[in-house]
Design a protein around this nucleic acid. Structure first.
Lengths: 331, 331
DNA sequence: TTGAAAGCGCTAACAC
DNA sequence: GTGTTAGCGCTTTCAA
């Protein structure tokens, strides 16, 4: 193994000079830097991560806690993870993967052992058992999602309330008077995951503001459940002309079920979705939608952490504004 | 921060004794062990990961390289990742997430810096540019997938050839004489990802053995492509009564398109899939399928690595046998 | 069965 | 602008 003293000897400088060339923490004459870099390249030197972590008390590793729960769209999780890794690498950091299963204890473990410098926690619940620990931890963290009490915590997410509102507004603007929100599975509401409730809130607020008829219908994430719910809507809400869907797996089944019942999209029924861009684009017909900005959430979580690690102050809440893209599913 | 010397003092022993209690690498009297463990608990001691890695030249971290490519079913990747993390934790290891994007250089980086002890590489290509590096690396690795030349490498995957064969056998056993394989997108075949070709090989072998009519049709992973292909099959292969699908996103669209053309599944058309269990179970109708054993792949990859890290010899190839589960899509 | 002490490879304070 | 050196916290030989 090539170590820093080997490089130092080869370049005819001291180990600390090599270290400083690498870290940029003090100025080095052009000539010296050249020679050091040449030696590093020639010898194929890589600093030992453990030694570095020990000496500098920085591991350059971020923890990412991913959810395992049902009712969560897996590709979005994956997209956030990939975006986080990519962003972390740009800042010379790596990402350690933890599962929700590890719980509070897992967070404490990686933080206290100095395995990671900071943490990103996905799928935060309204009353999340991990919050007390995150607050008392000496390491920075970012939550993806907004708990009920976010004091002293840094949170980021799509502004789901505004998203629900934007979708209802869209339908109102197109002249629809009787609309519905097909939402997340009941268990997602039950465990008080904030985003589902916030979409519903925004939806209801817009309904009220425009004097519409509009209600919220939770739906299991299966095609069967979608068909059953559509049957119920056809019976209970004959005047229904607009639907907001916030539940990825049922989007297509809902459109098809309405179509099969003679309510073709978009001619006899307008549909607006809250989902990842690619799903909306490839649906049939392509769906007007508010994007879940997974890439941006992943990237900005990392950037918030890097800022905190750099001693900067960051906003406690980052609410990403919804962007609605019109496609072929409403009119 | 609590360190090992603090624990030692508190328990009235030397630091090395604390270390040995934790590692179990030498015998400790029951009384001493008790006292040490009590002190550890009382002080909330966690060994510093970097210090440990430096002194022991083991980081207890595994690298997992995940693919980003198109034509790959994301939930399967996620499932393998979660299974790997879970298995790694059982062996007191953590998992560092790398993206394909980091390429050969990324593997070298984490290995040479001693950030990780071993590597799991997903989505291995027939001629994968990373293979030479993995061979010369001083750290153990496991490939998920089989390259053309697997000498000196440890590989694991579902036996896709046997899976393709089992599906065709299933249809042959039910009396079907004219069958088809709807496979991965063309680009997956083009970049010589082994598994797509192996499914086709196995399928063709069974077709030959039973004297059937059977061909392979690559298909883009979109509903549009599925509909187009079904149209083509209806025209070109009027006698077709059995279909094997190995392409998750098009399974449902294929079934629906045949249904729309009056070829109801399973009465007028039998369908057998190669896909994750839950997708087959929740399809409409539930699909007879060979499972892609993502959990087992993730778990066993880790176990192979742990064995190699422990100095054991492991089999160069682990081919997981296909298990076909009969459901409601064939007869 | 236990302790003392020499590193592991790097960073950063201190000195010049 | 550069060198010297004392740790960082742990593991593991060597010794008893």
């Amino acid at each position: 193994m090539v170590k820093i003293t080997d490089v130092a000897r080869h370049a005819g400088v001291s180990p600390s000079t090599v270290s400083y060339v690498l870290s940029g923490k003090r100025s080095i004459s052009a000539g010296t830097r050249e020679r050091v870099l040449a030696s590093i390249a020639e010898l194929g030197y890589r600093p030992h991560a453990g030694a570095r972590a020990l000496a500098s008390s920085r591991s350059n590793v971020l923890a990412l806690v991913i959810p395992l729960r049902s009712g969560i769209h897996v590709p979005v999780v994956m997209q956030i993870a990939v975006a986080a890794v990519t962003a972390a690498r740009r800042h010379d950091h790596d990402v350690l993967l933890l599962t929700q299963e590890e719980g509070v204890e897992g967070l404490r473990r990686v933080a206290d052992s100095a395995l990671v410098d900071a943490l990103i926690v996905m799928d935060v619940q309204m009353r999340d058992p991990r919050l007390p620990m995150l607050r008392e931890l000496d390491r920075p963290s970012v939550l993806i999602g907004f708990p009920a009490d976010a004091d002293d915590l840094t949170c980021i997410d799509l502004d789901f309330r505004a998203a629900g509102e934007a979708c209802a507004e869209r339908l109102a603007g197109l002249g629809h008077r009787s609309i519905a929100l097909i939402g997340s599975p009941p268990e997602v509401y039950a465990r008080q995951t904030g985003y589902a409730q916030r979409v519903a809130e925004g939806f209801r607020a817009a309904v009220r503001r425009h004097g519409l008829t509009g209600e919220v219908y939770p739906c299991e994430a299966t095609a069967e459940a979608a068909r059953a719910l559509v049957g119920r809507l056809l019976a209970e809400r004959p005047g229904l002309t607009g639907v907001v869907v916030h539940n990825e797996p049922v989007m297509e089944p809902v459109v098809r079920a309405f179509g099969a019942a003679g309510r073709r999209v978009p001619d006899e029924l307008s549909v607006v979705a809250i989902c990842p861009e690619d799903l909306a684009e490839h649906a049939d017909p392509p769906l007007t939608s508010v994007a879940v900005p997974a890439d941006e959430v992943g990237r900005r979580s990392v950037e918030l952490l890097m800022a905190k690690l750099g001693g900067e102050r960051v906003p406690a809440a980052t609410l990403l504004p919804p962007r609605l893209t019109a496609r072929a599913s409403d009119r």
